[in-house]
């Protein structure tokens, strides 16, 4: 096997452009996933069946079907509906929507984990419903789910190369482009593969440490 270090050097500028796009997609996708997941989790606790049911069906459907196909769906179908977005924006929405169905479960577990006594104390103090949620329940629920949310950010990072399939030039997209222009395949793909390890492994170590701290 020959590994051409100069090809690595040639690839680096494109690689860093790709890293930037990946991180952008990851950051924006996470924001959507965190916010939308909370919306799903709260909607699923609604007293109204007309709210609970559609949300349950939607989240189960999105969670049990492949992100890649969802990305294609958004990429090809949204313009037919008159919404034309850039590939990156479409990818961010797809990532965020897909992972919101996972974070919804995380929030749900976190909310269920707040002891019943906290609700009772809020009732005993006559705290209004909205205040009970924002000042008492959610701060406690979210604190205990931070590690689980972090784990999903790492999962999102590992799924982000799928965005290349709809034409986003993230890390894998840049590698593909580089290899089709220069016919160097070993180096760009290896660099990208190692880059994922280098980002994901320390991140997961960090989360495990955080989890141990919060567990105390």
């Amino acid at each position: 096997m020959t590994f051409d270090w100069s090809a690595v050097g040639d690839f680096l500028p494109a690689f860093f452009r790709g890293v930037l796009v990946t991180l952008q997609a990851l950051a924006l996708g996470s924001l959507i996933a965190f916010a939308l997941g909370l919306v799903w989790a709260l909607a699923q606790r609604s007293a109204r069946k007309a709210v609970r049911w559609p949300v349950t069906v939607l989240t189960e459907f999105v969670r049990n079907t492949p992100l890649l196909v969802q990305l294609f769906f958004l990429y090809y179908v949204m313009p037919e509906w008159g919404v034309t977005l850039s590939a990156l924006a479409t990818g961010v929405i797809g990532l965020g929507l897909h992972y919101s169905t996972y974070t919804a479960e995380v929030y749900r577990a976190g909310i269920d984990g707040v002891p019943a006594g906290q609700w009772e104390a809020a009732t005993a103090l006559s705290l209004p419903r909205g205040r009970t949620w924002t000042a008492v329940i959610l701060p406690q629920a979210i604190r205990r789910v931070v590690p689980a949310l972090g784990n999903y950010v790492i999962s999102m990072l590992k799924d982000s190369p799928m965005l290349f399939a709809i034409g986003v030039l993230e890390m894998l997209g840049e590698a593909r482009q580089f290899s089709s222009q220069t016919f160097q395949t070993v180096e760009p793909y290896t660099v990208v593969g190692v880059a994922f390890l280098v980002i994901a492994y320390p991140a997961s170590l960090l989360l495990r440490a955080l989890e141990r701290r919060l567990a105390r």
Partner: peptide
């Protein structure tokens, strides 16, 4: 609610229920 990330036992431990 699993996904590889939380299918790992303990990964979701912070979120497990602690009933009164």
């Amino acid at each position: 609610g699993g996904r590889p990330a939380t299918a790992v036992p303990g990964a979701g431990a912070g979120a497990t229920g602690r009933g009164e």
